[in-house]
Every structure is written in C-alpha cells, then in structure tokens.
C-alpha cells in the first residue's frame, strides 16, 4: 500500500489548493484547508474518492500532527514585547478559559450522549 502515499498526497494538496482558491475568491473567513477537509469528506461519502487512495498519506501526516505546530510556537520569540507588556491577563485568561471550555464541552457532550440509546464507550 506504500505506493498510494504519493497518490494520497496529491489528493490532499489538490483539495487544499482548491479550498484555498474557494476561500479567496468567495471572500469567506473559513480557511482553505478547512474547506479542503470538508471537500475530502464529501468526496469520500459520495464515493468519488476511495479511502484506500488517501488513508496512508493521511495516516503519515496525522501521526505527526503535533510536530507541525512547533514552528508557529517558536515564532513567539519574535513577539516577546507584546506578551511581556500584558502577560498577566494573557496567562490567566488563557489557562482559566481553557479549563472552562474543557468542562463545558465535556459536560454538555456527556449529558446529551446520555439521552441517546446505547452505552457510551469507556476510555
């Protein structure tokens, strides 16, 4: 199946490019890669693309998904002045708000899941 990695990368890049083009020409706030994700899902659901064509490339990229965030994080070093000026509200709001969102989302999800049939699967 390793031969499908090239085909998969081509599909992912073409869909991203098409998504970027749509995002730019329709002047919408949704970024091109998210549109590309929607297009890929649609194409798989409609049977236009086969899962076997993209799954190896997707697996390769998603196994190392967190690696791709590192350069953006390192970029912070250029903007330490902005952060140094107001580090307290930034730090406190970011940390506390992240816990608020985790709690609200998990609780609402759990509550609505309980309404449905079937036992929720345990971790």
């Amino acid at each position: 199946m390793k031969g499908e990695i090239l085909r998969g990368l081509v599909i992912l890049l073409v869909l991203q490019l098409f998504g970027e083009w749509l995002s730019e020409s329709l002047q919408i706030a949704v970024p091109g890669n998210v549109i590309g994700m929607g297009l890929l899902l649609l194409a798989l659901l409609l049977g236009w693309l086969r899962l076997a064509w993209v799954e190896d490339a997707a697996e390769l990229l998603l196994t190392h998904f967190s690696l791709f965030f590192i350069p953006a994080g390192v970029g912070v070093m250029v903007h330490t002045e902005v952060i140094a000026r107001q580090w307290q509200p930034i730090l406190l709001a970011t940390v506390l708000s992240t816990f608020v969102v985790l709690g609200v989302t998990a609780k609402v999800g759990q509550w609505l899941e309980g309404d449905e049939e079937g036992v929720p699967d345990d971790l």
């Binding site: 990368l9 992912l12 890049l13 869909l15 991203q16 998504g19 091109g32 890669n33 998210v34 590309g36 994700m37 929607g38 297009l39 890929l40 899902l41 798989l44 659901l45 899962l51 993209v54 799954e55 490339a57 997707a58 697996e59 990229l61 998603l62 998904f65 690696l67 791709f68 965030f69 590192i70 350069p71 953006a72 390192v74 970029g75």
Partner: peptide
C-alpha cells in the same frame, strides 16, 4: 535563520487539516 526550515514544517499543517477528513470518514 530558523524560520527557513520552520516554514517547510509549518506548511505541512495545511494538508494535515485536510487529512482530518479520513478518521472522520472511518
């Protein structure tokens, strides 16, 4: 100096977001 290579890795974020459709489809 770092950013020359950093940009290459950052670029892969784009196709990875597209690839998120795969676990979702499965």
């Amino acid at each position: 100096a770092y950013a020359q290579g950093g940009r290459v890795i950052h670029f892969l974020l784009g196709p990875s977001v597209v690839a998120l459709a795969v676990p979702l489809y499965r």
